[in-house]
Amino acid sequence: MSSFARVWRAVPTLLRIGVAETVAYRAEFLVWILTSTMPLIMLGLWTSVASEAPFRTFSSSRFVAYYLSVLIVRHLTSNWVAWQLSEEIRLGVLSMRLLRPIHPFFSYAATHIAALPFRSLIALPLTFILLISSGASALSTDPLQLALLLPSLFFAWLITFGILFALGCTSFWFTQMFGLFNFYFGVWSLFSGYLLPIALLPSWIGRIAEYSPFYAMLGAPIELMTESLTPHQLGVLFARQALWAVAAVATAFWVWRAGVRRFEAVGG
């Protein structure tokens, strides 16, 4: 049996396990979600700044639309696979996974996909708030853009997962990884548009951001939600997302292959 068919057959079971895990740790899951307060702080700050006069091209309602979209996209696409992987490598628990006839990329991915329904429970009320808030007027109404939102979110999810998986694999070489993860988060929050809309940043940062994978992870879907794009802009946006998705997944597999040879099952 080909390895692809093997993975395919295991998918329902993997998803069931993932759902069970999420349900078991639901309290922690909820608190974890509450910790992404940064967009809310920025929302409070910028709406009050823009309340009298628009800040550059951003009106108060545009800020509301922007930062609520940030929260929605982040809740749907983020994951903690790097921390998970790093912990399992350090403690040697990974040897259990290596025994299974499925590439860990898929088993981890299944766990995180299974958490998506729960994440939607957070994203749905947020979407509702966005639609009844003043931000609704700043949302895109173009049906094509809204239809393309789902594929764009899928690419964003895939890029995020691939990069974090590769980051987690660096634990094969180094033991203390949290410094690197923190650094990654810092770079990501700047170039993805998490901290500030790219349009407000100095233009040279904006140019770097546009070509970076970080923007494809968060900024691109937000652009679909809050701006009206020309067909050409849409094409460029999707081409970049697709390219980064392929690159991220390829890197994840490559770093895994190089790293797993060094694995010595600490304490196993």
């Binding site: 608190v31 910790t35 307060t37 940064m38 009050s48 700044v49």
Partner: peptide, 22 residues
């Protein structure tokens, strides 16, 4: 552990003067 992260996230608001919020 998560409660600690939450506390840090709340403290993050302290980087802005409280008057800028409404």
């Amino acid at each position: 552990d998560n409660l600690i992260y939450l506390l840090q996230a709340i403290f993050d608001t302290a980087r802005w003067p409280v008057q800028v919020f409404r």
